[in-house]
Structure formats: structure tokens, C-alpha cells
Design a protein around this nucleic acid. Structure first.
Lengths: 197, 197
DNA sequence: ATTTTATTCAACAAAATTGTTTAATAAAAG
DNA sequence: CTTTTATTAAACAATTTTGTTGAATAAAAT
């Protein structure tokens, strides 16, 4: 908590987030982070005593911000379909910017043993899950546990993006063609989870 | 390539695979691997000069084995629906045993820069993709790029399992209840991708 | 004008990990 | 019985990374 705000602290966090979650350099050293930010390594330690503290800070702020945006969407007064559309928008945008964020979560959760996941405000998610249940009862979506509905949604949005470098190799597809295929997914996922024609 | 086969080399590989891809200890040191296998660290270096060589060996053998099983399923003479059922079986079983295998792929691909992904036999996958296209033309599955069909399938199978520890925390669900929910997925995924009633 | 603050710089200690080497041991193969 | 092979053990060098420290500098705040 510096008295003059020179923006350096924020620069460090932004750079760290971009490198780790954006570019997938999950093992970036403090030196590499400092270099990427164009500052001295000492400055990193000036603001965050340890590398771990820095990374946890960045990660938690990311998760809280995303969680809040999703909560807003889930708890809004919009219709169910509008909510789903909004969730897709939010999630897809986040994943396109930071494809390695969830991969990081998975790898770190074992290491840390800590409480990595932000405390969930039970409210909005619960409300949304109840709405899912209502849709199922009304026969407007496939019969399943509401939790599975949400996991399906996240799976269809996240997985192809986090696996993109692999699948491009796997399917031998040029980058532009693959981007085209990813683009198709936004509407596709909506149709799929809502089973609309 | 030892002359007497004492099973130690295989033990090292099996232990490594279990620790890394099964338990998610992606950063296990050679010492930890040796301990888990109940052997001396020197033995690890006796069979594999470097840690990297060991891990790459384990990973590539895994991928080739899985790839072969999937190719068999995709290239078989079964009906389309039987093929999809078989793919779901294979993939789900693999993911349940080794939930961190794909996460490892993602984290390593950046590091290695190498050719991590086994050379794909273009044959079976291509054949299957053509069948997908035929199903789409016949209107039996949703209109989409065939690649997206396969990615949807893998996404729905992989993601919930690799994210299980997170989602259990997220949804505040007991392990047994969550396992129940995962169980539901096998039929659910089939119904979803084939849009059957 | 003086003090505070942010940042750099250089150097260093400590720890962790890796890969190597050499010798010893014990079992299997010949 | 002798040799080969697998494995352990101990010690070590090299490397990497981290976190700390103390001094220097320059800008901002008072």
C-alpha cells in the first residue's frame, strides 16, 4: 500500500496475469515477470514479499472479479435464456483473454492445499440453479442434475479454449480456420444447452 | 533396456504416471517418485538419465495407448451411435483414472515447445469426422463443424473430471453426492451430443 | 529545503534440485 | 565359480531461484 500511486504495483499484477493466465507461462520466475514489466526484480519484492504472495493476489483478484460478474448475471432479473446468454458472454470473454487461468487453478489446488477458491456467495448461484430446475421441470431443457447443467455450460465454453493449442495440432488445422471454428461455438453452445432448433 | 527384467523400470513408469496424472502431483521430484516407488533415486537415473526423459516417456506412452484405443473405436465397423458410446466409455475411464493427464499436457506444451502430441494417424479420426458430417447432413445431430462435435464430446467428458476438486468446493457438495452427479454424466453426454429424447 | 517514498543496483546467503561419479553389495547368468 | 547386471549408498558440483540487505538515486511531498 504505497502512499504515492505510481501505478507500478498494478503494472506488476497486470503483467503477472497476462504472462501466467494469458500466455500460459505458469512457471515464470520473478525475474521474468520483472523483465516483462520493464522493472527491476527488487520492485517485485518491494510490493510482494514472495512470489507466491504476488501470484495468489493476482489469482484471487481475478477469481473474485469473474465471480462477481457471473453472480450479477445469475442474479439479475432477466429471463432464463437471457441469463444463459450473458453467462456465455462473460465466460467466453474471460477464457479468450486468459486461457490458462483454469489450468492454473487445477495445478495449484494440489500444491496449495489452501483455500484457493474464493468464498462463493451462495445466493446468486443457488437462485440460478433453482431456475435451471424449473426449466427442467417445464421440459424446456434436458433432464439432469442442475449442477450438471452448469458444468456442461462451463465445459463447453472453457475446454476447447484451454485445449486450443493441442487440438490445432491434433486436427492439423491452421490458426485462422481454428479461430473460425471457435467463433461458431458461441451460438452453438447456447443451442446445445437449451436444446433449441 | 535391461537384460534381466526385474520390473523396476516398469514400476518407475507406473509410479510416475500414478503420481503425476492420477494424483496431480505434477511437480513431483525424482526423490519423491523414487520414494513412492520404494526405490533409490539412483535407480531412476539408472533407467532414465534425466527427469524430463522419464516424464516424457511416461506421457508419450500414455498418449499413444489412449490414441490407439480411440482410433480402434473410431475406425471400427460399428454404427455411429455405438462408436460414440464406445468413445465415451474409453475417454471417461481414462479420465477417471488419470484426471490430470490433460492438465499436464496444457502446462507442458508451452514449456517444451517440442512435439508433445503423438503423431496422429490421420485415418480413423478423419473417417469418424466424415461420419459426423453425414449424421449432420441427415439431421440426426445439431448443425456444426464436425471438429466442434468432437470437441464438445471431449469437453463434456474431460472438463468436469479435471475440475472436480474445484467444483466440489464451488457447489459445496459432499464427495459422494458429487460422484453421483458425475455418474449421471455418461448417459447424459450421449443424449446431449446425439440430441436424443 | 528537507524529508519521504519509489525504485534501482549489486551482492549474497540459503535452499532445492538435478545429474554425475565412484564404490559397495547382492543376486542372476554364464 | 566367475562375470555380469541391477541396485543402493554417499558425496559432490553445478545450477537455478528465491528472498534479503544496504546503499544509491531521483522524484514527489511537505
Amino acid at each position: 500500500m504505497p502512499l504515492k500511486d505510481t501505478g507500478t504495483e498494478q503494472l506488476i499484477k497486470d503483467t503477472t496475469k497476462r504472462m501466467l493466465f494469458g500466455e500460459g507461462k505458469l512457471f515464470a520466475t520473478t525475474q521474468e515477470i520483472a523483465d516483462a514489466a520493464g522493472i527491476n526484480r527488487s520492485a517485485v519484492h518491494y510490493y510482494y514479499r514472495t512470489r507466491d504472495q504476488l501470484i495468489m493476489q493476482v489469482f484471487q483478484e481475478s477469481m473474485i472479479a469473474l465471480s462477481n460478474r457471473l453472480d450479477d448475471a445469475m442474479g439479475s432479473s432477466a429471463s432464463f435464456e437471457e441469463k444463459v446468454t450473458e453467462i456465455i458472454d462473460i465466460y467466453l470473454k474471460e477464457m479468450m483473454s486468459f486461457p490458462y487461468e483454469e489450468t492454473f487453478m487445477v495445478t495449484e489446488l494440489n500444491k496449495a492445499g489452501q483455500q484457493l477458491v474464493a468464498e462463493i456467495k451462495a445466493g446468486p448461484v443457488q437462485i440460478f440453479l433453482e431456475e435451471v430446475e424449473a426449466e427442467i421441470s417445464a421440459g424446456r431443457i434436458e433432464k439432469m442434475s442442475p449442477v450438471n447443467f452448469l458444468m456442461n455450460l462451463f465445459a463447453l465454453l472453457s475446454y476447447p479454449i484451454m485445449m486450443a493449442p493441442l487440438y490445432r495440432q491434433f486436427f492439423q488445422i491452421a490458426k485462422e480456420d481454428f479461430d473460425q471454428i471457435i467463433q461458431e461455438r458461441k451460438e452453438l453452445v447456447l443451442r446445445l444447452v437449451l436444446k433449441r432448433p
